[in-house]
């Protein structure tokens, strides 16, 4: 509902006002200006944004799991520090995005409950398992890389808080990508076993990375409207092509083979031709039947449920609903937790 309910208007006047607001909204979009939280916006625009920002926030948080699983096994202390800092960054990205969603009137708690009850989705890539340490490099290179291709255009998205969050996030994502690529480079200079590990990892992640751009344009139902609203600025196929063209020279420099026999340079198009991922597999994973869907959601649900008593205690403490205990509580009693993020 538009926030202009008072004083009560005649039905006709209300409709007229709405038309006027809608025209202003379209004009703002047309000028490529930002829509801010207190601006009027069509209800469908708000719903689309909540869905997209929430899905993005959930992806950051679920995305902590496949890499987080290897922090304990990182094979050098330097790599352990890099990986831990990276996964911590992803938690920070989730925080910024949940905050952006909050400006649209939905709380982090509501959204988390939507995630763990399966009513909201996250990026399907995280439903694939991480099976070797090389995956930490491949995920940085291909998965963070594909995420950047998807996300850089979002820095100019029409909704202000989302666009500003994306600027910050994209900087860190490109840093992750470089670190991932650097791990693979280092491993390729190592032993034969390490080189084989890198190739095997790239073989597993190549197709799921291409799927990250979403279904082909003719099967993507929401694209047209999202583009008209400036929520989305490039089509899935455009971004996928850009990703392939950028990745091919990277793979060559690394010395790995991308597992697509149909991948060739097309002189005429000035772009690479490439094969299609198995879209049946994609839809199966989207539907919840991927290798790790159940595990990822269960992990998140367990953390959330196990933490309920802590969140309740913090609320009770902050509300001054303190127990009747004596003693001076001066000093470090703010009860607030640090959310300092580190961008190493």
């Amino acid at each position: 509902m538009p926030a202009v309910a008072e004083p009560e208007l005649e039905p006709g006047a209300e409709a007229q006002l709405e038309t006027q607001l809608e025209a202003q909204f379209e004009a703002t979009i047309g000028r490529k200006d930002r829509i801010e939280p207190r601006d009027w916006m069509p209800e469908a625009y708000r719903r689309t944004l909540v869905r997209q920002v929430a899905q993005h926030a959930h992806s950051e948080i679920i995305g902590m799991q496949p890499e987080g699983a290897w922090i304990g096994r990182a094979p050098s202390l330097r790599r352990k520090a890099i990986l831990l800092a990276k996964v911590q960054d992803e938690a920070g990205h989730g925080l910024y995005l949940y905050s952006a969603a909050e400006t649209l009137g939905v709380s982090r708690q509501e959204l988390t409950e939507m995630l763990i009850s399966g009513r909201q989705k996250y990026s399907s890539i995280f439903n694939y398992p991480t099976l070797s340490y090389a995956d930490m490099g491949t995920i940085g290179w291909l998965v963070d890389g594909a995420a950047i291709c998807n996300q850089v255009p979002l820095c100019r998205t029409s909704f202000g808080p989302y666009g500003r969050a994306m600027i910050r996030i994209c900087k860190e994502e490109s840093f992750h990508q470089r670190q991932g690529y650097e791990l693979l480079m280092t491993m390729m200079r190592g032993t034969d076993e390490q080189r084989a590990m890198v190739q095997e990892s790239v073989d597993r992640f190549w197709w799921p990375s291409l799927m990250m751009f979403g279904p082909p344009d003719d099967e993507s139902p929401n694209t047209a409207r999202s583009m008209a609203w400036g929520v989305k600025t490039h089509t899935n196929d455009e971004l996928r092509q850009r990703f392939v063209d950028m990745t091919v020279p990277q793979a060559k420099a690394l010395g790995v083979t991308l597992p697509d026999p149909g991948l060739v340079w097309n002189e005429e198009r000035g772009a690479h031709d490439f094969g299609q991922p198995d879209w049946d597999e994609f839809w199966e994973v989207v539907k919840g039947n991927g290798p790790c869907n159940a595990q990822r959601v269960a992990h998140r649900k367990k953390a959330w449920d196990d933490g309920a008593w802590v969140r309740e205690a913090a609320l009770a403490f902050a509300a001054g609903d303190c127990r009747d205990t004596s003693g001076d509580t001066s000093g470090d009693t703010s009860g607030e937790t640090s959310n300092e993020t580190r961008t190493v």
């Binding site: 987080g68 911590q88 989730g94 992990h299 802590v310 969140r311 937790t337």
Partner: peptide, 16 residues
Amino acid sequence: WCSNAPDLEEDIALSN
């Protein structure tokens, strides 16, 4: 604790 903390702020703080 990474990805297992009671909320995101604590997850980040414990990683720190």
